[in-house]
Amino acid sequence: MLNLFLIYLLTFLHPFYVSVTEVNHNQKTKSLEISTKIFFNDLEVALEKQSKTQLDILKPADKNRVDQVLNQYLTKHLQLQVNGKPVNLKYLGFEIEQDAAWCYLEVPQVSRIKQIQIENSVLFAEHDSQTNMVHITVNGNRKSTKLDNPESKFTATF
Rank of each mutant, 00 (worst) to 15 (best):
V18L: 08
V20I: 14
V20N: 11
V20W: 13
T21Q: 07
T21S: 10
E22V: 11
E22H: 14
E22A: 13
V23P: 02
N24I: 13
N24A: 12
H25Q: 03
H25F: 04
N26S: 09
N26C: 06
Q27R: 10
Q27K: 10
K28L: 06
K28P: 05
K30D: 12
S31D: 09
S31M: 07
S31E: 12
S31R: 14
I34C: 02
S35M: 13
S35D: 10
S35L: 12
T36F: 01
I38R: 04
F39T: 00
F40M: 06
N41S: 13
N41R: 10
D42W: 07
D42S: 08
D42T: 11
D42I: 09
L43V: 02
E44P: 01
A46K: 03
A46T: 06
L47Q: 03
E48M: 08
K49N: 12
Q50V: 13
Q50L: 11
Q50K: 11
S51M: 09
S51Q: 12
K52R: 14
T53L: 15
Q54I: 07
Q54P: 03
L55I: 13
D56E: 09
L58V: 14
L58T: 06
K59H: 14
K59I: 15
P60A: 01
D62G: 04
D62V: 06
D62S: 09
K63S: 00
K63F: 03
